[in-house]
Design a protein around this nucleic acid. Sequence first.
DNA 1: CATGCGTCAACTGCATGCAATCAGAATGCC
DNA 2: GGCATTCTGATTGCATGCAGTTGACGCATG
Lengths: 248, 248
Amino acid sequence: MAPTRNSKPDKVAIICQALRRAIIEQALKPGTKLPEDALGERFGASRTIARHALGQLAAEGLVELRRNRIAVVATPSWQEARDTFDIRIELERLVVRQLAGQLDAGQIARLRAHVEAEEGARGGPDAVSIRLATEFHILLAEMTESPILIRYVSEISYRCCLILATFSRPHSSDCAISEHRALIDALEAGRVEEVMNLMHHHLEAVADRALVAPAKPRGRDIMDILAPYAEPAPVPPAGQPRVRAIMR
Amino acid sequence: MAPTRNSKPDKVAIICQALRRAIIEQALKPGTKLPEDALGERFGASRTIARHALGQLAAEGLVELRRNRIAVVATPSWQEARDTFDIRIELERLVVRQLAGQLDAGQIARLRAHVEAEEGARGGPDAVSIRLATEFHILLAEMTESPILIRYVSEISYRCCLILATFSRPHSSDCAISEHRALIDALEAGRVEEVMNLMHHHLEAVADRALVAPAKPRGRDIMDILAPYAEPAPVPPAGQPRVRAIMR
DNA sequence: CATGCGTCAACTGCATGCAATCAGAATGCC
DNA sequence: GGCATTCTGATTGCATGCAGTTGACGCATG
């Protein structure tokens, strides 16, 4: 499992997985530079391989690739974050719709065990809590055995971690755990409508906790802060700027 | 937009785009081999670049990459096809939900112009009709200006083309055109619920036209054809074989 | 002190080369 | 003739090398 699983688990995949974990545990913060040389050296591979891995991660939206520039960990905008959660909600509603009442005892047990692990990580660092919470959702997706759904939910869940890293403040995961438990109960009981609503509200709650204000909580990038003031239209930047309608 | 945008649109991107088009126009059928050498030579690039492009396409689900084996155009299974359409329906409902009543006259005009193009292509080859129909949906997605939504809808639309190529028979696009017109009308009128339902039924209809029978219409892969017969459960392969636990 | 400019190191974009692995044909055996 | 085996060309996995571009530092200037 470490370096060589069966015969060759592909160096590119190894680097991708490592970077994904580093990103969702916030060891790599948004905006962090990822030079090909450094990655290659760190993982005992050539620049070619590191480059390929960065390409994959870029396709997943986790890193930004600018031509002739050093790749960086993606920094989602607030609007992208909002859209991402909207999509995630629909995808995960699909997951629980497929799963409600279809899980066997073993699967339910696995889910409950995972929530136990989340419970056990409450004292620990935020990074672990976030990772476990994310993995809970991916675990659910995997139970659908639908490759596409698994891929999309995994991808978007990782992106949401990135969003949390970008916007969220110290994070309280208590509510998430109880919400996960409620989800499992409803899944087991097979109440489709209820579990879809639970998932919807759960994710909405996660999003709300992260995305309270449309303005960036911290002055990460001065350009973004000034963006509204650079608009040709002389609209005073007051109140809740209705994000989509006009402002892009 | 053409081959060279400003100065350097990245050779990898060029190859990706070319292959995508070839795939959605069914010039490259599912299962077609894509050797790195050949691609590189054909596009005047090195194998490294072709390889990278294949990696990107694999991340999008358009090609399958098996270790030490020649890459091939992906061949979705019937169940994957069904799941893909389910996801697509939700994504595109999101698109029209955001767009209803928000489009300006110019955008409406662009949409109608596109449908005109579809109309004009009715006599032509299926490949063009399919491509145009797909581009209509991508055009809609682009009007949301949500990068994530655009990416996902584009990706999944391409995959659906692949599905059509795999399962569909001669294809009749007449209904699709009128359905597109109805969508535009509802979008312009801003009736959110109606346009979401229209999109839902439109895509459901497309899926139904393509996925009439769960068994593969043509014996592309003998293993898949025999798969139902290899099941341990002695269920006669009649009627609608509920592929998943309860199928969706 | 702030600003504009030139030089340079660092980094990316891409091609090529070499070893490892695989698919298929030719061969040998029963 | 049917089947297993070996051998070889074809193809991938990966590293390295070279050219072009970018960003940053340092220096000169107002």
